[in-house]
Design a protein around this nucleic acid. Structure first.
Length: 634
RNA sequence: GCCCGGGUGGCGAAAUGGUAGACGCAGAGGACUUAAAAUCCUUUGGUAGCAAUACCGUGUGGGUUCGAGUCCCACCCUGGGCACCA
């Protein structure tokens, strides 16, 4: 026994003992219960382990050791989420390959984790940038592709017109490029997506089956954003049918029928529609039958909208802006002509990118109508209180009776929603529908340091998935890491990489986008069950034994994206018959965060404490300055 | 702006609507020791008082209740997320 805790004697002694007895090697003995304890896959940064990491790993370690002593087979692995922007940027700066650097950082993380005495089974460790690992990330891409869940469509990127590169969101500050200072533009290029929207309902429903903090579940539900309502079609006046509209703005002889769809959760207010709004990016706008003067005005407005982020555009505090297109829509029930506006408070990415506006009963529509002097028509009489005219704000009541709504007058909101929904369907104008805020998962990155997307484009424009026998599609070593010139990844400038032959032996072009990092971290917990398998991503029996993770621990910063993507991939792999579970993380716990001014973190500088040579917490500055023997507990 | 958290002693923190501050750290005093370390005991929210005790105290302002840290309304501060940081 030691009289006193002397880290320099105590810690190395036990580290050595544990290592000698191979204490942390995963035991898979028959007849024992299993316990899978897991911490979030860390990204190894040059700064080394922080107090935040320790707060994450120590409790999990305690739990795993307890389970071990209670006789469980315990799986407590650690690996590294190694692909990503910081490593790539450092590679660009130093003109050296990111792999050795990441190797060094990961080794340092491991060394520090050993110093603080965490009992990980390092035999099962890997990095997401190891070809033996990302081979199977690519295989899963193929599984998604074959199930129709991976597809390409045009997507907007942040384009720096000076550096001629695509920028990550975090490299754009106040609409300007962090490095070059140029005003960032939106550029539309073909990008790969995963159809996570197809799993929206399941991702909500299955939250009931898992033990997670309620706050995190709520965030996931809100992110998915289910709403019930109706989707229906407006026809643009003066197009399609033979109607003698004498609208000055409509070009004569325009006969092709033009339509646009809107989604609403309040179909009961349809008689209160006094205008429609299209998102500035809406594809219909270019086709609207309007004269040159309106056209110029529209284009000017679109150019302005292009510069703003979605967050800025929808901020309630911001004054609404918009522009009348000169075109009109036909009200599906009354035949009345309704002005079509474009405004940036409507987003192309949510719903149909167009709305029916009911200023009497929606606050944003109300503000817009007030500003542009558009008619406000009350159609719901609230149950309590008199309505004062003119309205000072919208009446967003769900209790009330319909007024000014033809023969629907007198119905309650709920009754009207039913009847109008049925009528929409009966008249083939629209349908009752469930809408989700969730968007498909954009996976493409025009970057070097990521997992290559295993697709080959044939010369006649078809796509082929690279067969497993040809995986992995390895990242070639290059000299240039900058995405150069045309916005494509640096891989696009390597002839040996791009030029391939397709299944039928014809010349074809390899996909040059890589996958965003979230792909790599969406299945690593499965690989830990069977990390050395050369023939498969994992043996289903091993997965069946170890999964689901019994305790998953990490910070709330991953509350939505990582955790939602990992759940999605798990469900897809389940549906494809590759794994026997639908939810990867049975129990989730947040580690808490190191906040504000604590002994661990200084305000402003944000300097955090790290792990010193004896597994002791020290500030980075002190770690550099002090001789080893002076390091003490802080 | 929207979604999710948090705000209680010097510090880390506890409290099914029922004695706020358990437990721990640090501090103060003491025991043991030649002395120290370690250990043990006492004490410690604030103000006033020799004391018994009194009053005030859970971000702010209201409210419900016999009773509010806890429930309701409004607000302030703060952390995380908002889809290309991971």
């Amino acid at each position: 026994m030691f009289d006193r805790y002397l880290p320099s004697e105590f810690e190395p002694k036990w580290r050595e003992q544990w290592m000698k007895s191979d204490l942390f090697r995963t035991r898979e003995e028959a007849g024992r219960k299993k316990f899978y304890g897991l911490d979030f896959f860390p990204y190894p940064s040059g700064a080394g382990l922080s107090v935040g990491h320790c707060r994450n790993y120590v409790p999990t370690d305690v739990l795993c050791r307890m389970k071990y002593m209670q006789g469980y087979n315990v799986l407590h692995p650690m690996g590294f989420d190694a692909f990503g922007l910081p490593a790539e940027n450092e590679a660009i700066k130093r003109r050296s390959h990111p792999a050795p650097m990441i190797e060094k950082y990961a080794a340092n993380y491991k060394r520090q984790m050993d110093l603080i005495g965490i009992g990980f089974d390092w035999n099962r460790s890997f990095k997401s940038s190891d070809p033996e690992y990302y081979k199977w990330t690519q295989w899963i891409f193929g599984v998604l592709y074959e199930r129709g869940l991976a597809f390409q469509k045009l997507g907007a990127v942040n384009w720096d017109p000076v550096d001629k590169t695509v920028l990550a969101d975090e490299e754009v500050i106040g609409g300007r490029a962090e490095r070059s200072g140029a005003v960032v533009e939106k550029k539309w290029i073909p990008q790969w997506y995963f159809k996570i929207t197809e799993y929206a309902q399941q991702l909500i429903d299955d939250l009931e089956t898992i033990d997670w903090p309620e706050g995190i579940k709520a965030m996931q539900r809100n992110w998915i954003g289910r709403s019930e309502g109706c989707q229906f079609t407006f026809r643009v006046a003066g197009t399609g049918e033979k109607e003698a509209y004498d609208l000055e703005s409509v070009q004569p002889g325009f006969t092709k029928a033009l339509h646009f769809d809107v989604f609403t959760t309040r179909i009961d207010t349809i008689f209160g529609v006094t205008f429609c709004v299209l998102a500035p990016e809406h594809a219909l706008i270019d086709l609207l039958p309007v004269g040159p003067e309106e056209r110029t005005r529209i284009e000017e407005y679109q150019a302005k909208a292009k510069l703003l982020s979605d967050t800025d555009r929808t901020a309630d505090s911001r004054e609404k802006t918009g522009c009348f297109t000169g075109a009109y829509a036909v009200h599906p029930f009354t035949g009345k002509h309704i002005p079509i506006w474009i405004a940036d408070y409507v987003l192309a990415t949510y719903g149909t990118g167009a709305i029916m506006a009911v200023p009497a009963h929606d606050q944003r529509d109300f503000e817009f109508a007030t500003k542009y002097d558009i008619e406000v028509q009350l159609v719901i009489q609230p149950v309590e209180g008199e309505v004062q005219f003119p309205l000072k704000s919208a009446v967003e009541s769900k209790e009330g009776t319909l007024v000014n709504s033809n023969h629907y007058n007198g119905l309650s909101v709920a009754e009207a929603q039913d009847k109008l929904g049925i009528r929409l369907e009966a008249e083939a104008i629209g349908e009752r529908k469930i809408q989700y805020k969730l968007r498909d998962w954009l996976i493409s990155r025009q970057r070097y340091w990521g997992c290559p997307i295993p697709i080959i484009h044939t010369k006649d424009g078809q796509e082929q998935v690279v067969p497993v026998s040809d995986l992995p599609v390895e990242l070639p070593v290059v000299d240039q890491y900058e995405p150069s010139g045309d916005g494509s990844s640096p891989l696009a400038h390597i002839p040996e990489f791009i030029n391939v032959t397709d299944r039928d032996g014809f010349l074809a072009r390899r996909e040059t986008d890589t996958m965003g990092g979230f792909a790599c971290s969406s299945w690593y917990f499965l690989r830990f069950c069977d990390p050395h398998n050369h023939d498969q991503a994992f043996d289903i029996e091993k997965v069946k034994y170890w999964m689901p993770v019994d305790c998953y621990v990490g910070g709330a910063e991953h509350a939505v994206m990582h955790l939602l993507y990992a759940r999605f991939w798990t469900k897809v792999l389940f549906d494809a018959g590759h794994i026997p579970i639908k939810e990867p993380f049975q129990t989730l716990r947040n580690q808490g965060q190191v906040l504000g001014y604590t002994p661990y973190r200084k305000p402003r500088t944000g300097e955090t404490l790290g792990v010193g040579e004896e597994g002791i917490l020290v500030s980075y500055e002190e770690a550099k300055l002090l001789p080893e023997e002076d390091l003490t507990w802080k």
